[in-house]
Design a protein around this nucleic acid. Structure first.
Lengths: 212, 212
DNA sequence: ATATTTCTTGCACAGCGTGCAAAATTCAGC
DNA sequence: GCTGAATTTTGCACGCTGTGCAAGAAATAT
């Protein structure tokens, strides 16, 4: 018996190189978030982020394409987790069920407070909003590909993209609704989000027949 | 009997001022589109647009916030038309029916070739894609507001935003699908788009129960 | 220890977006 | 028409963005 290394992942050769990059990335994203909180969404420069992260301006751009992208790390990781959660669903399961389960599970796990913050920030910052929309769009593309591959040509491209787009729209609506009337209570917020996710997706499954 | 002036619009006091602004806007948007066609999506500068439109760089920014926004005039007008078409629907009509009808009607009328072009361009230009996503997002917000107002509190905010988001996702999927395998035939393209719109929205109404 | 690969940094440069004030254009009243 | 007010265009300046490049620093391999 060796260390705590499990067979789930490859040996994970985490040398100085890898670790430093991870740390730097974290530092930059953290600096961006801190600045966004204190000065407001679009009211700070890349130089300020870099300075606070203890890194050169040029290095910042080695990690992110823009200040907003750095801010959106959290959103990106949420979607990342949702995707991987979905792709680990049993093969036979109906699509909608799998997606609902994946999104609900993700809504439980994640550090949700930050997401609410970002959603609210995006309302006052076009650039941030665009970056978020773009993140969702890329996630959508990946999910479409995954589903297509999963169905092995059993459905038309239009069906798949309409379905995935609708599901993500419902998820977005749930987060939006949750972020809106959730000013500062962070307690059982996870439950509240999960609940809304399931609710919105149930509406979708009903074809929005009944205005609940 | 006078000129072709109909009672549909107010007197329309269209002086030199208004007309010049309209012309300038058109010229700029046209110049942007021409450049995008010849040099590719993100491969030209604002100065070039301004020059081709016969206008100063500064004036360009009086009309648009970015090159991509100028490119997206067409997308914006499509959504504008869809919204106004929707808002002119009979009051009692079920929501989904009204939306399907509005979108299908808009898909008939519009100058569709350009939209396909823009969709395809966006695939290779992140900035253009973001601008388009933003345009759809703003349209979504407006529609949500319209629907909310229309239902007079008869439905929860979550229901409304999930529904509208899903409907627009289906419309987007239809346009995507249409733009994808429609390289250059412009003939009955309108019919093809309309057909896909109705198809996608029918799937939505079915709750995506059957992978057609 | 040294060679090699990888990451960081500074520099330069073209381009973006905006405030500002001086022309230029349009409009209103006479 | 002429003249003054309102509106639009334009040039200029300024700080910020994003990227290529090459030199330097740090981690890794031999």
């Amino acid at each position: 018996m060796q260390t705590v290394e499990d067979a789930a992942e490859p040996p994970e050769p985490v040398g100085r190189r890898e670790q430093n990059k991870i740390d730097t990335r974290r530092a930059i994203a953290g600096a961006a978030l801190t600045l966004a909180r204190s000065k407001g969404a679009g009211s700070f420069t890349v130089d300020q982020i870099a300075a606070r992260a203890g890194v050169s301006r040029r290095t910042f751009f080695n990690y992110f394409h823009s200040a907003e992208e750095a801010l959106n790390v959290s959103t990106e990781s949420f979607l990342e987790l949702a995707i991987s959660s979905f792709s680990r669903r049993p093969a036979g399961e109906p699509l909608l069920d799998a997606m609902i389960a994946a999104l609900a599970a993700t809504a439980k796990v994640q550090d949700l407070a930050v997401h609410g913050e970002l959603f609210r920030m995006a309302a006052g910052s076009p650039e941030l909003l665009r970056a978020q929309l773009h993140a969702w769009e890329r996630a959508e593309a990946r999910i479409i590909e995954a589903v297509t591959h999963h169905l092995q040509g059993g459905a038309s491209p239009l069906y798949v993209s309409a379905l995935v787009g609708s599901v993500l729209s419902c998820a977005k609506a749930a987060m939006h609704d949750w972020a809106a009337d959730d000013p500062d209570r962070h307690g059982d917020a996870g439950g509240a989000l999960e609940e809304r996710m399931v609710l919105a997706l149930s509406m979708l499954r009903d074809g929005f027949a009944h205005p609940a």
